[in-house]
């Protein structure tokens, strides 16, 4: 029903270890390369952000658990490059380019522009908002992609079937459940929904505490 990345609420992970303030530091030189290659290869335009996330989530449970953060990135990048035909299995196995591409290269100038411009997720949509701020809603259950079995979704399992209240409206955003599988933007209204901690957890720390999630309209029904 869910994948290894969907870990919100899980027990057993131990303490969170703070780090010095300021710019986050790269702990190894190859971390820089992993970040740079992933961002640059995204500039080739062969996949979108949701396909990229789904590639990381689709690593085997064993790999996802064993890999450090940037190891996940680099493994998912290698998978995507081969699956989109940008790099061949032979090239990956040999570690060498076989022939040159005729595609326009991703240059420093191009990537600087794409970092500065970003890629908004808002789209025009024919789907009218079904909820307004203050409405009570319930999330669907189980938390699963309804288009593709085992597919990408952004409703965490800890919030499946939970009752909450619409807190913010964000207009229509690209639906990851569709976009991650090349089924189109399928943009629909996006909301921030607030849940009481007691709605989500057996032993909430404090009765006033809350959790919010950003949820698409099709994840929600009136309650």
């Amino acid at each position: 029903m869910t994948r290894v990345h969907d870990m919100g609420g899980r027990f057993g992970d131990g303490p969170v270890v703070p780090e010095p303030q300021g710019m986050a530091e790269f702990k190894a030189d190859w971390h820089k390369g992993a970040l740079a290659l992933t961002v640059a290869a995204g500039g080739l335009g062969k996949w979108n952000i949701d396909i990229g996330r789904h590639a990381r989530e689709s690593l085997s449970v064993k790999d996802y658990t064993a890999f450090s953060y940037y190891e996940k990135w680099i493994a998912a990048l290698a998978d995507l490059l081969v699956e989109t035909g940008v790099v061949s299995a032979g090239e990956l196995a040999s570690g060498q380019a076989i022939g040159r591409s005729d595609q326009e290269p991703v240059t420093g100038e191009r990537i600087a522009r794409s970092i500065a411009q970003g890629g908004p997720a808002t789209r025009d949509s024919d789907i009218a908002p079904a909820f307004v701020v203050g409405d009570t809603v319930r999330t669907r259950r189980p938390a699963a992609n309804r288009l593709i079995e085992g597919g990408h979704t952004r409703l965490p399992q800890y919030a499946a079937g939970a009752q909450g209240r619409i807190l913010l409206q964000h207009g229509a955003h690209v639906l990851p459940d569709s976009n991650a599988h090349r089924l189109g933007d399928a943009a629909e209204p996006l909301y921030t929904v607030v849940f009481k901690a007691s709605e989500l957890w057996a032993a909430p720390e404090h009765r006033g505490d809350e959790v919010t999630l950003d949820l698409w309209q099709s994840y929600l029904e009136p309650a």
Partner: peptide, 18 residues
């Protein structure tokens, strides 16, 4: 992982993609 990054960098720059 360092070798993985190096291999991907070699391939992608070698192909003229990045």
């Amino acid at each position: 992982p360092a070798l993985r990054v190096k291999a991907l960098e070699t391939i992608l720059t070698g192909k003229g993609l990045i």
